[in-house]
């Protein structure tokens, strides 16, 4: 395609929006767990993968529509998050204060072990083959842009969920407590925020978002037990570009990543998709060398 046609194509813009909205949802869950507990969940993408399998089996074995399965999968994801917090991660962190360096390194290795286990258990249980199913693939035309029903549904659900979580964080008491812990942990503890409750609920909310993102992924494209990690990487890019606890900026960063990926692939070739993704990832980290922790500290 000539350069200008690519830039003005509504088709590509729509594709970028769909990818971006999915990335936003993935990054949201990652951001909540990192924000409240300073834990980089490298297994986050693998939870997305498990959500995709749950939707796949529900649809192919029981004929349950992914739209109906979505809330159930999100709920199971949340329960899993709660259980993991209580079982593994609670003992890593104390009350008000976090020895950031130690917790970050140890939790990273724990999540890393978890990620290896999830990928390979999934491969053992479901075979390493790619899976996909057909759902809502009727074509809708608006202007000169043709969209399939499943893509519209993904954009709508991911977008609405992000808005709902944003409203929860800015309007409800529990959400404000969560933001307080993200921004000033010690201060939140002193003024009586139940930090433990904030932590388990952000784990649950984060894992629930990952499960939901998995259902949406399964509606879009084929996936395998090893499809999760690229989503973890995409989530990290969004967090690094967007900002900790800054949801609006995170949303914009996710859309930007969707645009970079979609247009980059359209302008070059599909072989370069991973090169692009990791290129942006490395670039973002090198430009913000100390991540967001340092930026937050700088603001204080």
């Amino acid at each position: 395609m000539p350069f200008l046609d690519v830039l003005t194509s509504g088709q590509l813009l729509f594709a970028a929006l769909v990818t971006g909205s999915l990335y936003a949802l993935v990054a949201l869950g990652l951001n909540l767990v990192y924000g409240t507990m300073r834990m980089l969940n490298v297994a986050h993408g693998d939870l997305v993968m498990l959500g995709a399998y749950a939707a796949y089996w529900a649809f192919t074995l029981a004929g349950v529509s992914p739209l109906a399965a979505a809330p159930v999968v999100a709920g199971v994801g949340a329960a899993l998050g709660y259980a993991l917090y209580r079982g593994l991660f609670q003992r890593l962190i104390g009350g008000a204060q976090i020895d950031a360096g130690r917790v970050e390194a140890n939790s990273l290795l724990l999540f890393f072990g978890l990620s290896i286990i999830l990928q390979n258990v999934a491969a053992l249980a479901f075979t390493p083959n790619n899976r996909a199913y057909q759902y809502l693939d009727n074509v809708v035309r608006i202007g000169n842009v043709s969209m399939t029903g499943n893509r519209i549904a993904v954009l709508a659900i991911a977008g609405l969920t992000c808005i709902a979580v944003a409203l929860f964080l800015s309007r409800s008491v529990a959400g404000l407590a969560m933001r307080a812990v993200i921004e000033r942990r010690e201060a939140a503890y002193i003024v009586g925020v139940d930090v433990d409750r904030v932590q388990w609920s952000s784990f649950a909310l984060g894992f629930g978002c990952a499960g939901l993102a998995g259902v949406l992924l399964s509606m879009l494209e084929q996936f395998s037990p090893f499809s999760g990690f690229p989503f973890t990487v995409a989530g990290f890019i969004v967090i690094i570009l967007g900002g900790l606890g800054n949801l609006l900026a995170g949303l914009l960063a996710a859309l930007l990543l969707g645009v970079i990926e979609t247009y980059g692939v359209a302008l070059t070739s599909a072989n370069l998709r991973s090169v692009l993704l990791y290129g942006v990832f490395v670039g973002a980290l090198v430009l913000f060398p100390n991540g967001l922790l340092a930026r937050l500290k700088g603001r204080r």
Partner: peptide
């Protein structure tokens, strides 16, 4: 210059970037 857990994931990203670049 990148520290802590960011270095960990960055080192992974650099290795994957080189891998996918050579593959391409």
């Amino acid at each position: 210059r990148v520290r802590g857990p960011y270095f960990v994931i960055l080192s992974f990203g650099v290795a994957e970037l080189v891998k996918f670049s050579i593959m391409a």
